[in-house]
Simulated assay, not measured.
Amino acid sequence: MLTVLEPEGLYPDTGLEQQILGPGVRILQGNARASLAELPDELLAEVDGLMTLRMPVPAEQIARFPKLKVVVRMGVGYDRVDRAACAARGITVCNVPDYGTQEVAEFAVLLALSLRRGLILYHDTQRGPDPAPWAVMPSPLHRRQEVQGFGILGLGRIGSAAALRAKALGYRVVFYDPNQPNGWDRALGIQRARTMEELLAQSDVLSIHCPLTRGTRGLIGEKELRQLPRNAVVVNTARGPILDIDALERCLRDGHIAGAGLDVIPEEPPKDPIPNLLRAYRAQEDWLRGRLVITPHIAFHTPEAWDDIRLKGIETMRDVLVEGRRTNVILPESD
């Protein structure tokens, strides 16, 4: 009999999992909150398949699973799993790439639109005992959509959905993704940039949608931010380490970047010393009024998305562990 472990105890029962996996598979739930290290060796010794949502799967914990065959990361990003360690053991790593697509795409466009149309500025300045005058406040943030380029960095499922939503709102959409085949731009009715530099030069809004890999960590630093048009807006709903948050602070402070919307930051949850930009945001420093939105990695959140995580995650485990298929398999060399 095969054994699948869901170590975080995410759900009140395992009825759905048992129904999908079938009677030949045993489902175990753990009660760990932060680390697999919280679980005993005798439990991990029985496990053939591991399901994780928030929990990292580092090499030293993989070594504690003598029978492990499949790891399913219950989400799109797979940077929390040490794929090199898994590959060395012949362990298959999968993700769930087709959940939360609409939610994250909508949230990315919402962040850009709320900054560009002044929603955040007027919200911030009308609060408190000393609100701003009841009048228009000139700001370099505010632009009509039709005069802006909306740059998509990474045109996967979420990037494509964001591109279509931005296009529907009137933005001129351009993307850069060297992994997408020719013709993808024509299929979506958007423009392809041949290089990163070409994308940045046209992006009055830059929306980040690429996965976090060795090649994309730190991809957007100060050099890249300063290649954006002056008064651009930067949105990140992908992974925090793709964007240099200290470089973003410098570009916001000197006015080259007009605003930013971040659903992700380099370390989540933040720990001391927290980034200077987050410190200034929490202190509500005047120079950031209306220019920055930070949310706690919740762009995906709807009840429907949570249902998809559970269903599609366990379906992926069934396909790969029980039926031997290659559903949603992430290859070690895909970095």
Score class of each variant (00 low, 15 high):
3 T>F: 15
7 P>W: 08
8 E>Y: 15
11 Y>F: 09
15 G>L: 12
20 I>D: 04
24 G>W: 14
24 G>K: 14
26 R>K: 05
30 G>F: 06
31 N>Q: 07
32 A>I: 01
34 A>F: 01
34 A>Y: 01
37 A>F: 12
44 L>T: 09
45 A>M: 00
45 A>N: 01
54 R>V: 07
55 M>E: 03
60 E>W: 14
61 Q>H: 11
62 I>D: 14
64 R>V: 11
65 F>G: 08
67 K>Y: 15
67 K>H: 15
71 V>S: 13
72 V>P: 10
74 M>P: 09
75 G>P: 06
77 G>P: 12
78 Y>R: 14
79 D>W: 05
82 D>C: 14
82 D>N: 14
85 A>W: 13
91 I>K: 11
95 N>W: 06
96 V>M: 14
96 V>I: 13
97 P>F: 10
101 T>H: 04
102 Q>I: 08
104 V>E: 10
104 V>Y: 11
106 E>G: 10
106 E>Y: 10
107 F>A: 13
110 L>H: 09
116 R>H: 01
116 R>N: 02
117 R>A: 07
121 L>S: 00
121 L>C: 02
122 Y>T: 03
123 H>R: 08
123 H>L: 04
125 T>P: 06
130 D>V: 08
136 V>K: 11
139 S>R: 05
143 R>I: 00
150 F>R: 08
152 I>E: 06
154 G>H: 06
157 R>M: 00
157 R>A: 01
161 A>F: 04
161 A>S: 06
164 L>P: 06
164 L>C: 11
165 R>A: 01
169 L>P: 02
171 Y>F: 04
172 R>N: 11
172 R>C: 10
175 F>I: 00
175 F>S: 00
178 P>K: 11
180 Q>K: 07
189 G>Q: 12
190 I>E: 02
192 R>G: 09
192 R>Y: 08
193 A>R: 10
194 R>N: 10
194 R>C: 09
195 T>L: 01
198 E>Y: 11
200 L>I: 13
206 L>T: 15
209 H>K: 05
210 C>D: 07
221 G>L: 03
221 G>Y: 04
227 Q>K: 11
228 L>V: 05
234 V>T: 00
234 V>S: 00
234 V>N: 00
236 N>Y: 05
238 A>I: 01
244 D>C: 04
245 I>N: 14
248 L>Q: 14
250 R>W: 01
254 D>R: 10
256 H>R: 12
262 L>S: 13
267 E>K: 03
268 E>K: 14
271 K>R: 12
272 D>I: 03
273 P>W: 02
276 N>C: 15
277 L>D: 04
277 L>H: 02
277 L>A: 06
277 L>T: 01
278 L>A: 10
281 Y>T: 07
282 R>K: 14
283 A>K: 04
283 A>H: 07
286 D>V: 05
286 D>P: 00
287 W>R: 09
288 L>T: 03
288 L>S: 02
288 L>F: 03
289 R>K: 02
296 P>Q: 05
307 D>V: 07
308 D>R: 04
310 R>W: 05
312 K>V: 01
315 E>H: 08
319 D>Q: 12
320 V>Y: 13
321 L>W: 01
321 L>I: 01
322 V>H: 14
322 V>A: 13
323 E>C: 10
324 G>P: 06
325 R>W: 07
330 I>Y: 12
